[in-house]
Design a protein around this nucleic acid. Structure first.
Length: 200
DNA sequence: GTATGGATCTTCT
DNA sequence: GAAGATCCATACA
């Protein structure tokens, strides 16, 4: 079980802090929910971020208020969900890459088809399909909208593993990927040369 | 177990 | 017209 829904102030902080603090929180949509075990941070000052090119029709959501959901289509097929962070003059967001299912597992299975239990939510395109999140949720609020994120239990500080981001071709060297240490639900194995955070 | 290529579509040049 | 924050099936070791 998780705590209260995170408020806008939680997201109105440096994106790297939010990315770390979101690991262990619970992403909720309808009857389905899952604990976040993997995140990545994106910021308009580095080339891998969509907002790097500035404010366009596509990236306007990245410059929306902190606590807004940025959902976009990837490779023409998949929907990926991000949590917008920092102020409205900054294009920054945290990509949710993997979940450990906590509620509505039967519904997830129905949506995902005959996949292995472990493959339900271990990828950014998979978890949105499992939770039923689509492009219609773009620009909705994570505080009081259809998709929400609940805080972890007070006092619970997960151990994190930090590595480089996945699936990008620019700014690949930045260690902006955060995984729950020891989780077998992450989207890919931990990279070599990773850094360990004692307390996140 | 790892490696490779196709599907599919929005956005920007 | 080309690229992209992915996933899946298939081939091979």
């Amino acid at each position: 079980m998780s705590g209260a829904v995170l408020d806008a102030a939680f997201y109105d902080r440096p994106v790297l802090e939010v990315a770390r603090d979101l690991v262990g929180c619970e992403l909720v949509h309808g009857e389905t929910a899952g604990r976040i075990v993997e995140t990545e941070a994106y910021h308009h000052t580095e080339a891998a971020c969509h907002a790097y090119v500035g404010l366009t029709a596509r990236t306007s959501t990245l410059f929306a208020a902190p606590g807004t959901a940025y959902v976009y289509r990837s490779y023409g097929i998949h929907a990926l969900i991000n949590a917008v962070c920092e102020g409205e003059d900054v294009g920054a967001a945290v990509l949710v890459r993997a979940l450990d299912p906590t509620a509505g597992v039967e519904l997830m299975r129905a949506r995902r088809g005959p996949v292995h239990e472990r493959d339900l939510c271990n990828g950014p395109g998979k978890l949105t399909q499992a939770l039923g999140i689509e492009l219609t949720e773009n620009a909705t609020s994570l505080v009081d909208g259809p998709v929400r994120i609940r805080a972890r239990e007070p006092g619970v500080v997960p151990e994190l593993v930090t590595g480089t981001r996945i699936g990008i071709t620019k700014a690949v060297e930045l260690p902006w990927r955060f995984c729950l240490r020891g989780s077998r639900r992450v989207s890919r194995p931990y990279p070599p040369g990773l850094l360990h955070h004692g307390t996140g």
